[in-house]
Amino acid sequence: MSYSPAIVANAVLTRANQRGIFISHLKLQKLVFFTHAWCLAILGEPAVNERPEAWEFGPVFNTLYYRLKERGHERIREYIESVDATTNAFATLVPSPADDRFWRILDQVMDRYGTFTAAQLSTLSHEPGGPWEQARLAGQAVIPDETVRLFYEGKLQ
């Protein structure tokens, strides 16, 4: 159950559109990260098949950044198209509706974090002792999944 950042981002956008939530590039990055983090903590599996990087404003999925960097702080309304491996055509892809575990966690993430601003989410992703801070202090460019999993599992207890 690991998806590209674009596919997880499309799932976040789907839920945001259903709920009337404003999503900017920065906010989308953080919601994808929190979805990834809680999937690791609850399911023991990553939601995203790319590791987040420890950038200045928190965890960032590099490929998602380069696809959306021109958007700035504006609202993202369109879904991200990817190449569908079965048809070899561009398509708007989201996780399968049959992936109940993913969608349940995403819904919990949207319930908990969806109404926060991008700045608030960035602050939350900089939590003292959190995965982003651990990676930055260790001089790591990439935040290891194990670091993310252990930190968010600790929040469950």
Rank of each mutant, 00 (worst) to 15 (best):
Y65D: 05
R75K: 15
E74R: 09
F57Y: 15
T86R: 13
R67K: 15
L68P: 02
R75N: 15
E78C: 03
L64H: 02
E81D: 14
T87G: 04
T86L: 13
A85K: 09
R67S: 10
G72I: 06
Y65T: 03
K69E: 14
V83I: 15
V60Y: 04
L64R: 04
L68M: 08
D84G: 12
V83S: 08
D84Q: 07
R75L: 09
R67V: 09
H73W: 11
F57H: 12
E74Q: 15
K69Y: 13
F57V: 07
R67M: 08
A85W: 11
E74G: 12
H73P: 04
L68I: 05
G72N: 11
R77E: 15
T86I: 10
F57C: 07
E70F: 10
K69I: 07
A85L: 12
G58D: 01
E70T: 11
S82A: 13
R75Q: 15
L68F: 04
I80W: 04
R71H: 09
I80H: 03
L64K: 05
R67G: 00
G58Q: 00
L68T: 05
E70R: 09
G72D: 13
L68D: 01
L64F: 02
F61N: 05
E70C: 05
T86D: 13
N62M: 10
I76W: 06
G58T: 06
Y79I: 02
R71W: 08
E81N: 12
H73F: 11
A85S: 14
F61E: 02
G58K: 01
S82W: 01
V60H: 05
F61D: 04
H73N: 15
R77H: 14
R71S: 10
L64I: 03
G58E: 05
G72P: 08
T63L: 07
F61W: 07
Y66N: 15
V83C: 06
E74S: 13
S82Q: 15
G58A: 05
A85P: 14
R71L: 10
K69L: 07
L64M: 01
N62V: 08
G58I: 02
R67P: 00
G72C: 12
Y79H: 10
I76T: 04
T63S: 15
V60A: 01
Y66S: 08
